[in-house]
């Protein structure tokens, strides 16, 4: 079987398209690369959506934590503490155990039945956990950035008579984003790495549709050789990481475009965050 044929059969296997049964014999390098690559789509799906939703929530939580009002600040602090203070591994497990307790027949609300059983599926349940998790980490980064906005910027805004919402949206928020961006890039990288935990703790794979690590374990289980599939996963992740760095680097350049070249913040990959 040619490699192109293999890609056609298994390229979208993780989405439930193509061959129904996974390969049982041979396990050529082509098959291994195709299957694991197909699994990468889940990692990208989880990473991209969690980052998008998490970004929005993180802004709100960071502002709540910076707020003077106890009623806003305390819940934000607890939210951040719980999600940053415990291993993602355990969060996944607990979330799955909690989500399967939801009634199977749906919840009755005002005569309407809301279907909830899909929440325990990885595509939804794990996404929710990753979304909340990254929101907590990002909120902490944004909160730190909010507090390190140069005093002069705010005083200048006051002098120009810019205040309230317009001060926030035109001065504080862009500056916060600019200051937080390098750390946020790290968060994005490690979030993608964290997506490998989805099918590893708690969430089961349906119809053998899983992420890159799931297929790698399948191949190890069949070939009894851990030295090929796992390095293939590593290879894909290095590519993914490079792509993330490029993309975030481009945004970073845009955020810093008004500054003289020697004051621009460069992205340094530092281990601010991992789970």
């Amino acid at each position: 079987m040619s490699c192109l044929q293999t890609i056609a059969d298994y390229g979208l296997r993780s989405m439930g398209m193509g061959e129904r049964l996974l390969p049982k014999t041979d396990f050529t390098l082509c098959q291994q690369f195709t299957l694991i690559g197909s699994g990468m789509m889940w990692n990208i799906y989880f990473g991209v959506l969690a980052l998008l939703f998490g970004f929005v929530l993180a802004n709100a939580v960071a502002m709540a934590k910076a707020s003077n009002q106890m009623i806003l600040r305390k819940p934000a602090e607890w939210f951040i503490f719980i999600f940053r203070g415990s291993p993602l591994f355990i969060q996944f497990f607990l979330a799955y155990e909690a989500l399967v307790l939801l009634p199977r027949n749906g919840i009755e609300l005002f005569g309407l039945t809301a279907e909830v059983s899909w929440l325990s599926r990885a595509w939804a349940g794990a996404l929710i956990v990753l979304f909340l998790n990254t929101a907590a980490y990002t909120a902490e980064i944004f909160y730190g950035a909010l507090r390190s906005i140069p005093k002069g910027d705010l005083e200048a805004a006051d002098a120009y008579g810019i205040s309230g919402w317009s001060r926030f949206i035109r001065i504080q928020w862009p500056t916060m984003l600019r200051l937080a961006w390098p750390a946020y890039t790290n968060e994005a990288i490690f979030l993608f790495h964290a997506t490998t935990l989805v099918f590893f703790s708690g969430f089961p794979a349906f119809r053998q549709e899983g992420d890159a690590l799931y297929y790698a374990s399948y191949l190890v289980d069949k070939t009894f050789n851990p030295f090929i599939p796992y390095p293939i996963v590593a290879f894909y992740f290095i590519l993914l990481t490079l792509a993330v760095i490029r993309l975030f680097g481009a945004v970073n350049r845009r955020l810093n475009r008004h500054l003289p070249s020697n004051e621009r913040s460069k992205i340094k990959v530092r281990p601010q965050i991992i789970r």
Partner: peptide, 14 residues
Amino acid sequence: AGYVQESGATLVEF
């Protein structure tokens, strides 16, 4: 696990 996948049922793996 292999048998269930081949049988046509939806395999859920743990």
